[in-house]
C-alpha cells in the first residue's frame, strides 16, 4: 500500500468520524443530507459483498466493516434518534434517490467488467459513489450557511477522492497490469463534483472568513 492510498483511506475515515462526532456530541445533524448518507450506506452494502467471498487483509476487512457500520449508524441516528432527528431539515433535503440510483444501476448493467451479480453490484457502487454527494452539495447550496464541521466533512471527502487519484497514478507506474477504467473514470467524475466546493472552501480559509456558498 502506498502513502497516497493510506492517506486517502485515513481522510475518508476522518470524514466519517467528523460526521459521527458532530451527530453524537452536538446531537445535531443540521446541514447534513440524509439522502447522501443513505446513498453511501447503499454504496458500501453493494461494494463490500466480497467480504463473504474474498479475504484480502485484516486492514481491508476492518476498514470495510467500519465503513458499513458507520454509514448505517449515521442513517439510523438521523432517522430514529429522538433528539438528532429533530434537527434534520427534511424540507430542504429534497433530492430524489432514484434519480441517481436508477441511472447508475442501468449503467452498471451495460458497462461492467463481467456480467455477474457481484461484479454488477460492485460497478453500481462505483457509479453511485461518484454522484452520491450531489444531495449534500444541493443542500449546502440551499442553506448556504455552513457550520465548520459540515464544511470539514465535505472537505475531507474531497481530499480522500483527490488522494485516491494520486494513488491510481502511482500504482499505474509501479504495478504491472494496473488498469481500471471504470474505477478511474467514475473516481474522476466524483472528484470533479467537489471542485466548486473546494474553490469556495479555500477562499474562505484564505480570507479567514466563514464558509458561505453563493446563491
Amino acid at each position: 500500500m502506498n502513502i497516497f492510498r493510506l492517506a486517502g483511506d485515513m481522510t475518508h475515515l476522518a470524514s466519517v468520524l467528523v460526521l459521527l462526532l458532530k451527530i453524537h456530541t452536538i446531537k445535531s445533524c443540521a446541514g447534513i443530507s440524509l439522502k447522501t448518507q443513505e446513498l453511501y450506506a447503499l454504496v458500501f452494502a453493494t461494494r463490500y459483498l466480497d467480504l463473504f467471498t474474498d479475504y484480502i487483509s485484516l486492514y481491508n476487512t476492518l476498514m470495510k466493516l467500519i465503513f458499513l457500520v458507520s454509514s448505517f449508524s449515521i442513517v439510523w441516528y438521523i432517522r430514529h434518534h429522538k433528539i438528532v432527528r429533530r434537527s434534520y431539515d427534511k424540507d430542504q433535503d429534497t433530492f430524489r434517490h432514484y434519480f441517481l440510483v436508477l441511472p447508475c444501476f442501468l449503467l452498471a448493467l451495460v458497462i461492467n467488467e463481467k456480467f455477474t451479480v457481484k461484479e454488477i453490484m460492485w460497478t453500481f457502487s462505483l457509479y453511485l459513489e461518484a454522484v452520491a454527494i450531489l444531495p449534500q452539495l444541493v443542500l449546502l447550496q440551499r442553506t448556504r450557511n455552513i457550520d465548520n464541521l459540515t464544511g470539514q466533512y465535505v472537505f475531507l471527502l474531497g481530499a480522500y477522492r483527490s488522494l485516491y487519484i494520486l494513488n491510481w497514478i502511482y500504482r499505474y507506474f509501479t504495478e504491472p497490469h494496473y488498469v481500471h477504467w471504470i474505477t478511474w473514470i467514475s473516481g474522476l467524475v466524483q472528484t470533479l463534483l467537489y471542485a466548486d466546493f473546494f474553490y469556495y472552501y479555500f477562499q474562505s480559509w484564505k480570507n479567514n472568513v466563514k464558509l458561505e456558498l453563493p446563491a
Binding site: R5, D9, H12, D50, D54, I56, S57, N60, M63, K64, F67, W122, Y164, N167, E175, H177, Y178, T183
Partner: peptide, 10 residues
C-alpha cells in the same frame, strides 16, 4: 493473458 489484480481498494 494478463491476470486481473484483486480488488484491494475500499
Amino acid at each position: 493473458d494478463n491476470p486481473k489484480p484483486p480488488k484491494d481498494e475500499l
